[in-house]
């Protein structure tokens, strides 16, 4: 689904990511760990094609096509969707409007919103004055309307309260499985267990692992992928030894 080869990304002339190789196969969900400032957000922004994140080397392929130089909206149209860590506010554009932009039909908008308890925000300006948790739900809702094949989540659960975390966790799970919220009670076990969509989820806490079956985790350290492995094992490793271990891994790799 997504193949990244030897990617090097610069932000304002400074190298932020280097030697990134990453493959997310169809139907698989990958986790991305890494300390603050290690480049996780930058990697997702580069995959999405944001102009501040300049690919100076390597390439990004999606569904077999080289998308390294495609404009953002064409990547979106091909089926990449992203939930942002810090989305901009847009004055005068209502949540209702942006959901339609994302592809929701008039009569779907309210149903989608009620899934993540967001009905009362439909006539608010997008992200204007939203709390941290509200931003997460708004982002998720937009992805639900977009229904992409590759879902990029940038810390979807950070700062979310205990009650909402299961709401968000489950919504992400269903989104990854391509099951629309309304239908989930009726679908068969087989439908539930066969995933076509792929995911890449940035998390610090790993709470999302309680809701989503993740196949693999990568640790980003200082702009490089330090290691790869079972998500729970890596999470355990990080919580016991901290990211300090990654330095050793990186050194080993480079030897």
């Amino acid at each position: 689904m997504l193949i990244i080869e030897d990617l090097k990304v610069e932000v304002q002339g400074k190298t932020i990511l280097e030697h990134i190789d990453l493959e997310v196969p169809p139907g698989k969900t990958y986790i991305l760990f890494g300390p603050n400032g290690s480049g996780k957000t930058s990697l997702l922004m580069a995959i999405m094609g944001f102009s501040g994140y300049k690919v100076v080397k390597g390439k990004i392929c999606f569904k077999g096509e080289d998308i390294t130089n495609l404009p953002i909206n064409e990547r979106a149209r091909m089926g990449i969707g992203m939930s942002f860590q810090r989305p901009p506010s847009i004055d005068g554009v209502k949540v209702r409007d942006i959901l339609k932009i994302c592809g929701a039909k008039d009569d779907e908008v309210n149903e989608l919103a009620s899934n993540v308890h967001f009905l009362e925000f439909m006539d608010r300006d997008v992200n204007v004055g939203f709390s941290g948790g509200e931003i997460k739900r708004s982002e998720l809702l937009q992805l639900m309307a977009q229904s992409p094949d590759l879902l990029l989540f940038d810390e979807p659960e950070s700062g979310v309260d205990l009650e909402n975390i299961s709401l968000i966790g489950n919504a992400i799970n269903y989104l990854l499985k391509g099951i629309s919220q309304g239908k989930r009670e009726y679908c068969t076990y087989k439908e539930r267990s066969t995933r076509k969509r792929s995911g890449l989820i940035i998390t610090h806490t790993g709470h999302i692992l309680n809701y989503v079956d993740a196949d693999m985790a990568n640790v980003l350290y200082n702009g490089r992928i330090a290691c790869q492995g079972n998500p729970r094992e890596i999470l355990r490793g990080i919580s016991v030894h901290g990211y300090g271990e990654c330095i050793r891994c990186l050194n080993n790799c480079n030897k």
Partner: peptide, 18 residues
């Protein structure tokens, strides 16, 4: 807005309208 599927021109006009 482009990440939500709009072209640059469409995104601009949505923002201006907003």
């Amino acid at each position: 807005l482009m990440a939500r599927g709009l072209s640059e021109e469409e995104a601009t006009s949505v923002i201006v309208r907003g």
